[in-house]
Simulated assay, not measured.
Amino acid sequence: MTDEPLLRVSALSKFYGSRVGCENVSFDLWPGEVLAVVGESGSGKTTLLNCLSTRLLPSSGTASYRMRDGQWRELYRMSEAERRFLMRTDWGFVHQNPADGLRMTVSAGANVGERLMAVGDRHYGRIRATAVDWLSRVEIDEDRIDDEPRAFSGGMRQRLQIARNLVTGPRLVFMDEPTGGLDVSVQARLLDLLRGLVTDLGLAAIVVTHDLAVARLLSQRMMVMKDGHVVESGLTDRVLDDPRAPYTQLLVSSILQV
């Protein structure tokens, strides 16, 4: 692991008029580290994720990313084209609803292949072979490569979206409720798959979730948000086993009582 972070966030805030989306959020993310951002609906976690991934521009604050050449770039000073290129190559974004992250009217293989073409691969045979390999890694049979995602189950669509995001070897992946809306048995299988891939590939990831079990399984560190503010942060096991903020204690106890 390098002695420098991958992402540095300082005093990041987003306001919608007088309403707080998120306020004064600061943290460093290290290569290979998974950070979970947890909180109830409306806590600001998705606003924060959208600001970090440059889908939203913040009202104030900075976020700097260390590029592959070692140079630091301030995300909100990059051009729109530069940010889009980053999203297609060095970053991934796994949506809660897979339809938001897939092209539903092209084949599964084309969904994966498009990302490879975005980084300059033009060799059809190599693209297809890589797509086959990645479909197998996310437990989709090779004979489904020419099927459209519309013919897939929710769990298969989410696994395809993961393959599409990871095929270019990104260094940072954003995940917005990656198991939301899936049956419990499908969730467990998907989480197991995600954990294995993140570990094998040495990915850094920021995972937004309201599910503390997801946070415990995937992340080394977590931040708890309430009303747009970070109320507690630390190593995941410490936060969940010894919560200090009253709100975190309430979250943890409500899970234990279910």
Rank of each mutant, 00 (worst) to 15 (best):
R238Q: 09
M156F: 02
K45Y: 03
D192F: 13
R84K: 12
R8Q: 13
V20W: 06
G109V: 05
E23G: 02
E23S: 12
V230S: 01
L193H: 07
C22L: 11
E139P: 05
T199H: 12
M67T: 11
T179A: 14
D141K: 12
R195S: 13
P149R: 06
Y124W: 11
L166H: 08
L48N: 03
I127M: 10
L160A: 05
H229F: 11
D176A: 03
H95Y: 15
E139N: 13
D146R: 10
D227G: 05
V230T: 11
M175Q: 07
T62F: 03
P31K: 06
L86D: 07
D133V: 07
D242R: 14
E74Q: 11
D200E: 15
D133W: 13
K226A: 11
A63P: 01
I145G: 02
D147S: 15
G155S: 08
V214C: 10
E142N: 12
S185Y: 12
E40F: 05
D227N: 14
E139D: 14
R8W: 02
V231T: 04
I206N: 00
S219A: 15
V119E: 10
R88I: 10
L75I: 06
T130Q: 13
L235V: 01
D143M: 04
T54R: 03
L12F: 05
K14M: 07
S43W: 04
L172W: 00
V9K: 03
V214A: 08
F93H: 11
W134R: 09
R144W: 13
S18W: 04
